[in-house]
């Protein structure tokens, strides 16, 4: 069962890479691409963890989870900052042009 789980983990990670590549080419949105890639990478990490609970697998899964949280938090914060600033910039430009 361990070998099958390792194989499935590798295939899920590969599918994440392929899906991310096509999504990047199709949408040109980095946040969506990274989100999809990290989601499928987390699935692969969980399968690897189910296959063998070695310290390297545990640290690897923890690292992927940590990176995923930091990246998703950064994207959310970046989006919110843009959403917060955009109305102010628009208002400033309207005042400048007198419309």
């Amino acid at each position: 069962m361990t070998a099958a789980l390792h194989l499935m983990a590798a295939m899920v990670a590969l599918s994440g890479l392929v899906a991310a590549l096509f999504i990047l080419l199709g949408t040109r949105r980095v946040d969506v691409t990274v989100g999809v890639f990290l989601d499928l990478l987390v699935a692969a990490g969980l399968l690897r963890l189910a296959a063998a609970s070695t310290w390297s697998a545990i640290i690897g899964a923890g690292a992927i989870l940590g990176i995923r949280q930091i990246v998703m938090w950064a994207f959310r914060r970046g989006g919110r900052a843009l959403g917060g600033w955009r109305p102010l910039i628009t208002r400033h430009l309207r005042t400048e042009s007198g419309t």
Binding site: L40, A43, A50
Partner: peptide, 22 residues
């Protein structure tokens, strides 16, 4: 094994869904 199966089915389903959306 049940947990791994659920995760694999979810990953395959999601991959097919991503391709379909694309």
């Amino acid at each position: 094994a049940a947990g791994a199966l659920v995760i694999v089915v979810g990953a395959v389903w999601a991959f097919v869904g991503f391709v379909r959306v694309l």
